[in-house]
Amino acid sequence: MKTFEELQNSWQQKEQKINESFLKGITRRIQNVKAKKKITMIVLAITMAILFGYFLWVGIYAPPLFTVGLILMMSVLTIRIVLEWRSMNLLNRIPLDHSYHDHHQSMKVYYNSRLRIHQVITPFLLLIYWIGFVLLLPTLKENLTSFWFTYVWISSIPIAIAMVVFIRYHIKKERKTLEQLEKELSRP
């Protein structure tokens, strides 16, 4: 029969050799993390610039219906990028040195906001995106050969399916994390 104090004593005796190599590499690892963040920001900025450039190149002189469609699709992509960037910042801003309960609460708020994005905002944005795409079709039909026009609209079907799968995956993921957060405090 072991007492708690005996268990505690054995527990504190479990020691390992200190991993000194971690200390040597930590500066490089932190620089890598910073570089990754910088790259993400650069990629987002380039994506936005390409979208804007494409609009200036194609959209301005195109028929009004095509321009509206293009504006809708680009706005959706821009909003989605901004939402993702905002969400990433929100997570990074949650203080890690708060108590477990405060941190747990902040994480719940964060994951609920992610769930709202996937359940409400993203499906709405996708609807707008596809309305934009449909508005492009008359102009595309006039200007593309029948082969390329058929190719464009047929290839849009797997893209639409992939988008729905993507949303479902993320809803499931955020729900699972929220359930886990609930379990952390409720199970005996």
Binding site: L96, D97, H98, S99, Y100, H103, H104, E184
Partner: peptide, 11 residues
Amino acid sequence: WLYRIAVNTCL
């Protein structure tokens, strides 16, 4: 401070 970061990071 360290333990708070450790607990929150691990979880």
